Amino acid sequence: MRSIHHIAIICSDYERSRHFYSEILGFPVIREIFREARSSWKCDLDAGNAAIELFSFPDPPPRPSYPEACGLRHLAFAVPDIAAEVARLEGLGVSTEPVRIDEYTGQKFTFFADPDGLPLELYEDAATAS
């Protein structure tokens, strides 16, 4: 195994989540397909070295997040300047937790949630600066 190819996310409101991931978080849409047999949308988003697959299904069951359940804990995005990204997100109405420092790496990080409450993280990584 060499890398992460994609991350699949099932959402409860496709249009709301598509807007969040493409317009607010800024991941460009690669392709978007309506799968009639499943009554489901699939949207592939360019997340750099991996893709995010955003799916809609009729009436998906809720996934427990809090208290933390066994399984995938969160999805983290590398950003070059966490303060700027937090300010940008909060300016768009996305609440973030206070920025903390990773006690082992010394890097700054914070958490926020997608429209379905999926925990997401911003992790400051100067190497992501262009």
Results as ranks from 00 to 15, higher is better:
Met1Asp: 05
Arg2Met: 10
Arg2Gln: 14
Ser3Ala: 07
His5Tyr: 07
Ala8Gly: 15
Ile9Tyr: 04
Ile10Asn: 05
Cys11Glu: 01
Ser12Gln: 03
Ser12Leu: 01
Asp13Met: 04
Asp13Val: 08
Asp13Glu: 10
Asp13Trp: 00
Tyr14Cys: 02
Glu15Arg: 07
Arg16Phe: 01
Arg16Leu: 03
Arg18Pro: 00
Arg18Thr: 01
His19Asp: 01
Tyr21Ser: 00
Ser22Leu: 08
Glu23Leu: 09
Leu25Cys: 10
Gly26Gln: 03
Gly26Val: 05
Phe27Ser: 00
Phe27Cys: 02
Val29Asn: 06
Ile30Val: 15
Ile30Leu: 15
Arg31Pro: 10
Arg31Met: 14
Ile33Leu: 15
Arg35Ala: 12
Glu36Ser: 15
Arg38Gly: 11
Ser39Ile: 09
Ser40Gly: 14
Lys42Thr: 15
Lys42Asp: 07
Lys42Phe: 12
Ala47Lys: 08
Ala47Arg: 04
Gly48Pro: 06
Asn49Thr: 10
Asn49Gln: 14
Ile52Ser: 06
Leu54Cys: 02
Leu54Pro: 07
Phe55Arg: 00
Ser56Gln: 03
Ser56Val: 02
Phe57Val: 02
Pro60Thr: 03
Pro62Arg: 06
Arg63Asp: 08
Pro64Cys: 09
Pro64Ser: 11
Tyr66Gln: 15
Pro67His: 13
Pro67Thr: 12
Glu68Val: 13
Glu68Trp: 09
Glu68Lys: 14
Cys70Gln: 08
Gly71Ala: 06
Gly71Lys: 06
Arg73Cys: 03
His74Pro: 01
Leu75Arg: 05
Ala76Thr: 04
Ala76Ile: 05
Phe77Thr: 11
Ala78Asn: 15
Pro80Asn: 13
Ile82Trp: 12
Ile82Thr: 12
Ile82Arg: 05
Ala83Asp: 13
Ala83Gln: 15
Ala84Arg: 10
Ala84Ser: 07
Glu85Tyr: 09
Glu85Phe: 14
Val86Phe: 02
Val86Asp: 00
Ala87Phe: 06
Arg88Ile: 03
Arg88Thr: 09
Leu89Ile: 04
Glu90Ala: 02
Leu92Tyr: 06
Gly93Tyr: 11
Val94Leu: 03
Thr96Gly: 09
Glu97Arg: 03
Pro98Lys: 04
Pro98Ile: 10
Val99Gln: 14
Val99His: 08
Glu103Lys: 11
Glu103Tyr: 03
Glu103Gln: 08
Glu103Ser: 06
Glu103Ile: 06
Tyr104Glu: 05
Tyr104Ile: 01
Tyr104Trp: 07
Thr105Gly: 05
Thr105His: 06
Gly106Asn: 04
Gly106Tyr: 03
Gln107Thr: 05
Lys108Asp: 07
Phe109Val: 01
Thr110Tyr: 00
Thr110Asn: 05
Phe111Val: 04
Phe112Ala: 01
Ala113Thr: 09
Asp114Leu: 07
Asp114Asn: 09
Asp114Ile: 07
Asp116Ile: 01
Leu118Pro: 05
Pro119Phe: 04
Pro119Trp: 03
Pro119Glu: 00
Glu121Val: 04
Tyr123Asp: 11
Glu124Trp: 13
Asp125Ser: 10
Asp125Ala: 14
Ala126Tyr: 12
Ala127Asp: 08
Ala127Phe: 09
Thr128Lys: 12
Ser130Tyr: 13
Ser130Met: 13
